[in-house]
Each structure stands twice: as structure tokens, then as C-alpha cells.
């Protein structure tokens, strides 16, 4: 019987096209270095990534779900942040 379970880590991977690191899932590992190695083996089996971040799941502070309204509603009013807000005539072509 194992005495102590390995801690859980959240894994973030940056793909080949220079986009931001993206959360891909979690795994167990005894420490950060092993978490990176395990992440390579578990989450890049199909050459998905070029850079890996690992964060102990316990270290993540999440926005509280009950505050979901106040945190996210204001952005909904800023519709100008979305490209479809702007009406561009068809003659202008693709933008």
C-alpha cells in the first residue's frame, strides 16, 4: 500500500505555432521536475507541444463560481472587443 499519494499537477503546453500555453489536463508526480517529464510522456505523445509548464493543482486559486456574474458580465457589454461588432462593407473584401 502506498503511504502517500503523489500530488496532482496542472499541465500547460505551448504548441508549435507560438500561441499561449494552454491547459491540457492534469497528472500525478512526486515533484515539479518529474511532473514535467511525465507531462512530456502523457500529453505530447502526438508531438503536441514545444514548451511545458507545470503547476501544483493546490497552488491554483480559482475565481469563485458564485462571483461568476460580477467577474464576467462586464465584458459581455464590451461587444466592440469582438470583430463581428464592426460592419464592414462586402466590397472591402476579407478583413
Amino acid at each position: 500500500m502506498t503511504k502517500k499519494e503523489w500530488p496532482l499537477w496542472e499541465i500547460f503546453i505551448r504548441g508549435q505555432h507560438g500561441l499561449n500555453h494552454r491547459h491540457v489536463g492534469s497528472l500525478h508526480a512526486p515533484d515539479a521536475e518529474m511532473a514535467i517529464k511525465n507531462a512530456r510522456d502523457v500529453y505530447t505523445r502526438r508531438k503536441e507541444g514545444v514548451s511545458i509548464w507545470v503547476v501544483p493543482s493546490a497552488a491554483i486559486t480559482a475565481s469563485s463560481p458564485s462571483e461568476k456574474g460580477p467577474l464576467f458580465d462586464p465584458a459581455e457589454s464590451k461587444v466592440y472587443r469582438h470583430p463581428t461588432f464592426f460592419d464592414i462593407p462586402d466590397e472591402v473584401g476579407h478583413m
Binding site: 502517500k4 503523489w6 512526486p30 515533484d31
Partner: peptide, 19 residues
Amino acid sequence: WDKGAWFRDGLTAYAEKAA
């Protein structure tokens, strides 16, 4: 699972010592 216990515990122990 049972035969792997020493492996999992060994790696935990190392991680604690290293920390």
C-alpha cells in the same frame, strides 16, 4: 499496484528529501 508501491514511495521519499 501492490508491486509498484515501493516505486511510488521511493520517488515520494526522494522528492521530500530534495525539497
